[in-house]
Write a protein that binds this DNA or RNA. Structure first.
Length: 288
DNA sequence: ATGGTCGCGCAGCGA
């Protein structure tokens, strides 16, 4: 808890999380509850499905976080909540391609870490225009990194990348042949991010199979363990060396009205980050 | 194996 703290606190460890919330409006209470439990210092969100004007700045402020939001409402929408600073907000390459594909990219510097929250296009089906747009989006994401970042930076690229990088990232690889999320071009696009200088830090800490971040709402797939690992925390080498743990919080997928994605987070030894002052709510004056 | 459920918004689409 940050309540009761006097003066700025310095953190030696920073927790950076990502969660496709599938409508922040519907998920608001759940997100607030998860933040209170998990205490992330930075939370990247995807599929907020909100216009910027409807972003719940005050609710995050009350919890001690600044919020940057990029959305047009209805579909897509990405955000970054931070309690260790939030500056140099960028919408990146949004709107520059033949199919802009909506609000799917947001970058901000939190503490001294560059955080990029992305929501990759789904692709729907192979050999369709939306599939080609997905690959094009990936190409533009890589180009953004090449132009606007350096592999030597402290950078986290996180979010719903809509790619299962390897066969162990899907519950049954034989069902995912010649389909989106696993196709060779998609995996090559994902691999190109790693080749640029990013590390799949969750996989480093958890080489075991059966670790997923998304489960179809239908057919009780979550309870049957039928999921995919399509949400990722990709970090540069300098941060990978300082990552002490990474986890997927399956518990957040349980209960009533969950998102179909679970949040995941990485804990980094980044000494000297200053925790933002919690907002002091105005108090009602009592007449005497 | 198929389809099964959500969210948005009010029909049917997107995931």
């Amino acid at each position: 808890m940050v309540c009761g703290r006097i003066g700025p606190a310095r953190l030696d460890r920073v927790r950076i999380a990502s969660w496709n919330v599938n409508s922040l409006k519907v998920r608001q209470e759940r997100v607030e509850g998860w933040i209170a439990d998990a205490q992330p210092d930075v939370l990247a969100m995807q599929e907020t499905k909100l216009a910027d004007g409807a972003a719940p700045l005050m609710a995050f402020q009350m919890a001690g976080y600044e919020l940057a939001h990029h959305g047009e409402g209805r579909w897509n929408g990405v955000a970054i909540a931070s309690r260790v600073g939030l500056r140099d907000v960028s919408h990146g390459f949004e709107g520059t391609g033949p199919d802009a594909e909506g609000a799917r990219f947001l970058a901000a510097t939190c503490g001294d870490v560059r955080v990029v929250s992305v929501y990759a296009p789904n692709g729907r089906a192979l050999r369709t225009e939306t599939y080609e747009a997905k690959l094009d989006w990936y190409a533009r994401l890589l180009a953004w990194l090449q132009v606007n970042a350096d592999p030597r930076d402290d950078l986290v690229l996180t979010g719903d990348l809509n790619v299962a990088p390897a066969d162990i990232d899907v519950y049954d690889p034989t069902l995912y042949v010649d389909s989106t999320h696993t196709s060779a071009p998609e995996r090559a696009a994902f691999r190109a991010l790693l080749d640029w200088g990013l590390v799949d830090i969750y996989r480093v800490h958890h080489p075991e199979p059966g670790r997923y971040t998304w489960w179809d709402y239908r057919a009780g797939n979550f309870h049957k363990g039928l999921g995919m690992r399509i949400d990722h925390l990709l970090v540069t080498a300098s941060l990978a060396a300082r990552a002490v743990d990474a986890q997927i919080d399956r518990s957040a997928r349980k209960g009533s009205l969950p998102s179909d994605h679970a949040p995941l987070f990485v804990d980094l030894d980044v000494p000297g980050v200053v925790l933002r002052e919690p907002w002091d709510p105005p108090r009602l004056m009592r007449g005497s």
